[in-house]
Nucleic acid binder design. Structure first.
Lengths: 249, 249
DNA sequence: CGTTTGATTGACACGAGTCAACACCAGTGG
DNA sequence: CCACTGGTGTTGACTCGTGTCAATCAAACG
């Protein structure tokens, strides 16, 4: 399969892992074989739920999903956006039990990997293990930055920061087109992400538009960054925490 | 060294890793050898700083440290408390560059491990690699819960949740004495942790004391939980995310 | 003892939540 | 073809949690 000969790949997981790990052709070939089963999910459905001990771990191939938790008063907190190439729940292979849920935000195509293959990887494929570990460490870095945003940035800057982050991550996934990219999140989703109300998310979006930092052409399923540098400056955004140096401009 | 024969150990890292991994005597022996160099740090000093590419990764042996970031307006966000047995910066071995800083909150005794030994572990010690990866995944789980607290819990419940978490983690480290444990954080530290002001941290602590959920005997360097169940109920605390099942009551 | 660091309190301002009404679609079915 | 529907976005009025700014107090310390 020439996809695995170190050249172009249409597989978003391998594309992503190349940013952080040195994988031999044999490693990439093994990854291809692990990703056999693919399932399609509708928008707004759960892939795995808190408390599950799933037999498979999942990788997003197309679409957008998220990690989230529900609190007793019914509030939802989104803790990560999962874009093509991201693992949904690799940690269950080591931790055993899901401590949160994974849900789709749009229609998704998702690959499954059995826990047994992950165990085999940790036992006998050190470079892939290192690559998987690298991927969880990047996720953790993103989570830390979200915590900083939530704790110490006002809502407008927090939203701007999220938009900058998505631009870089989607660029790495080959999904940035010029200065615009898919932005299929409802304002309700955004509120649950930023820890604010849907109404306030609306106002913050309007403010960024009024300040000519972003545009939401059409119905708002896409976003265009009008002045990248001004937006990053405003958001105090520094992409180092994404650890995408190898191919990032 | 009989410490590594699968019995009692005074080494907090090994004690912790036993919760999540199966380590052979040879693995534990190797861990002991890696932890050779020990350094003492004063309170309120940096162990590593954002942007560093340190030659060593660090493990807390005694004392309390934290991860933090500073934002442009001078605010500080604490993103994790590091207690004995916790890695400070294992991720630099894979990610290369620190994307945040590590500082002590009290005097600390900290062990150093060279990056080269970590590379040797990932290349040839699969059980230890898995244990280290497990430890980062637990850290990530804690971080997710902090994000939920920050986004969706009012400040009083958020503080209560933090106190519950510390009780469990310090119990796992053998540092819980009855219903009380070391609590050497200033209200300024607590504010920077919860994403609130020092003044508000003070008021939330007072509220928990008024409600007879906690006690801060003496100067407040220790804390006593008066009604564990009521506190956990109030905080919506569920310890599953700490993944301490093996030895946790 | 002064000095310093941390804890406490009160008055006031502001960011963000809540509630409610309304507008704007895209589907759907009669 | 159009009326109905539900999901989403938008707006305004009011409330409330938290921040800010001081001043004061308490304990630790050289």
């Amino acid at each position: 399969m020439k996809e695995s000969q170190g050249g172009q790949t249409s597989n978003p997981l391998i594309r992503k892992l190349r940013y952080g790990a040195e994988l031999s052709d044999a490693d990439e070939q093994h990854l291809h074989e692990m990703l056999g089963q693919v399932r399609d999910f509708d928008a707004h459905t759960d892939v795995t739920s808190e408390g599950d001990r799933p037999e498979y771990v999942h990788v997003v191939l197309e679409g957008f999903a998220c990690r989230y938790k529900i609190v007793p008063d019914g509030g939802r907190q989104i803790m990560a956006y999962l874009v093509p190439g991201d693992f949904c729940d690799l940690h269950v292979a080591l931790l055993g039990e899901m401590d949160h849920s994974i849900g789709t935000l749009t229609k998704c195509r998702i690959a499954q990997i059995s826990r047994r293959s992950v165990d085999e990887v940790t036992a006998g494929w050190p470079a892939i293990t290192r690559a998987f570990w690298w991927a969880s460490l990047v996720d953790e870095g993103v989570l830390r930055e979200w915590l900083v945003s939530m704790g110490r940035r006002p809502a407008d800057k927090q939203l701007a920061h999220l938009i900058c982050e998505l631009a870089y991550r989607l660029d790495a996934a080959g999904m940035l087109e010029g200065r615009s990219f898919a932005f299929p999140f409802t304002q309700h989703d955004l509120g649950d992400t930023l820890g604010i109300s849907e109404v306030h998310a609306n106002r913050m979006l309007q403010q960024l538009r009024r300040d000519n930092l972003i545009e939401l052409p059409g119905g708002g399923r896409r976003i265009t960054i009008q002045h990248r540098e001004r937006l990053e400056e405003f958001a105090d955004f520094h992409p180092a925490y994404l650890h995408l140096k190898k191919r990032m401009k």
